[in-house]
Amino acid sequence: MSAVPAPQVDTRADGAPAGSEARREPGSVAGPENRTDAAVIAAADQDTEQFAVLYDRYAAGLHRYAYRRLGPEHAEDVVAETFAIAFRRRRTYDRSRPDARPWLYGIATKEIARWHRSEEARLRAWARSDVGRPEESLADRVAERVSASAARPELAEALRRLTPGDRDVLLLAAWGDLTQEQIARTLGIRPGTARSRLHRARRQVRAALGAGATDELEAGR
């Protein structure tokens, strides 16, 4: 990733719970549970089955992430393909990086991109799933707008309207629990780019949510 001045420190500013298994005290004994991801990948040089440790650490998170984005039809394939690609490329893994999550999510992101039509359809369906709700008073709906499910159509539509790159950044942050620096490494972009994309995506989503509330007020007038 020659284009990216790579930060060497794996900060976990957000204290994201998922993947924190990989965080180890420096110098700790490299027992099976204590090893960094890099150590696991190195161990797989000798014993390829060691790679399953990575699966056990991250498959659940990757599966949930892929499932949220693509739904049941493709989530498992994305996970399977991500690990198959990672395994094939394991010797190219930069072993100075203890945490393999950006690497794995980077592969997964490209796999997810192959199914962009499914994502499109999923977001449309998600937006519509609100259609069947019983009619509520406008006041209820406006009050409820603070809750996530009430804003679902606007949220889904806003996600759908993001550029693919912006959507990746936003969802890796919100659903993948990755920090901005991890996202930058995941996508092979500069940290500053990740920051500006996240900022832009958040602003667009915020605007869409705001506009939705306004539309509704005006429609009910």
Binding site: R64, Y67, A148, S149, R152
Partner: peptide, 12 residues
């Protein structure tokens, strides 16, 4: 926060 909360609706 809203996105994180709403995301749980899409969970497997």
């Amino acid at each position: 926060t809203m996105l994180r909360d709403a995301g749980t609706e899409l969970d497997p």
